[in-house]
């Protein structure tokens, strides 16, 4: 396992036109730990996550990966050179709610593609490595399938393998199980738990409170673009002080009572 990255988010602000989506966010993501981002819909969880690999441009503040500013040359300065940005992104894996697998390629080709185009690996080696990565997520017998011939859970595991094969030092997950049928959630969470146990730095936007409670090292709660609280799950999920968090958790529990 390669070294794990840390992320430092300082006074980050993000606007969509006039709309202030992220307000002065400060958050430290320690290396090798799992940080869950929770909060109501529209609170800015995805926006914040996507600022970490600069898929979304933040307007002010700093996002530092291992102390290195991402996106800009200096805080508030010029955009960083595309080449350097790509280089930084290639060490940050991202997993999307909708999987975003490339439908015209097999599972194995999906995983190999980044190794070939970004890491400059030769195709046979890349395919071999893709096979290993897929085997680790339990898909050794599905490597030749196109995404349309895989279940949602299998597709998401391919997407995780695609990210992990790049040897990232940090993994970002945006609601990785929200698009899945309930019975398929477990297989994806298990793969994520294994990654976490391996010492990967993970930032996970999730509505799976069980995952947050049992796997996260810290949980950050956002509401209306503000970071309302950050704490270990036992405190923030069991005895939150902020009334906004209390009310969010109450709604969550009510919805999940059978």
């Amino acid at each position: 396992m390669v070294e794990a990255s840390s992320v430092e988010i300082r006074k980050v602000n993000k606007y969509y036109g006039q709309f202030h989506a992220l307000k002065d966010i400060d958050l430290t993501i320690p290396p090798g730990k799992v940080t869950c981002l929770i909060g109501p819909s529209g609170s800015g969880k995805s926006s914040l996550l996507r600022c970490i690999n600069f898929l979304e441009e933040y307007d002010s503040g700093e996002v530092l990966i291992d102390g290195q500013l991402i996106g800009y040359e200096t805080p508030g300065g010029r955009r960083m050179a595309p080449r350097r940005l790509r280089q930084m992104r290639s060490t940050i894996g991202m997993v999307f709610q909708q999987f975003n697998l490339w439908p015209h390629m097999t599972a194995q080709e999906n995983v190999a593609e980044g190794l070939i185009r970004v890491r400059g690996m030769r195709k046979p080696q890349a395919m071999e490595r893709a096979a290993e990565a897929l085997t680790r997520v339990g898909l050794a017998d599905r490597m030749g399938n196109h995404p349309s011939r895989l279940s949602g859970g299998q597709q998401q595991r391919v997407a995780i393998a695609r990210a992990v094969a790049m040897d990232p030092r940090l993994m970002l997950f945006d609601e990785p199980t929200s698009a899945l049928d309930p019975e398929l959630v477990g297989e994806v969470l298990n793969v994520m738990k294994a990654l976490a146990a391996g010492g990967m730095t993970m930032v996970v936007v999730t509505h799976e409170m069980g995952f947050a409670a049992h796997v996260a090292d810290q949980v950050a709660f956002l509401e209306a673009g503000e970071l309302v609280g950050v704490d270990v799950p036992s405190r923030i999920l069991r005895e939150p002080e902020d009334p906004r968090i209390q009310s969010f958790l109450r709604t969550y529990r009510e919805r999940n009572v059978i």
């Binding site: 690999n53 898929l55 992104r89 290639s90 991202m94 975003n100 980044g114 970004v118």
Partner: peptide, 9 residues
């Protein structure tokens, strides 16, 4: 986005 996130040109 998946291509950008992985660092593709």
């Amino acid at each position: 986005e998946a291509a950008i996130a992985i660092g593709m040109r």
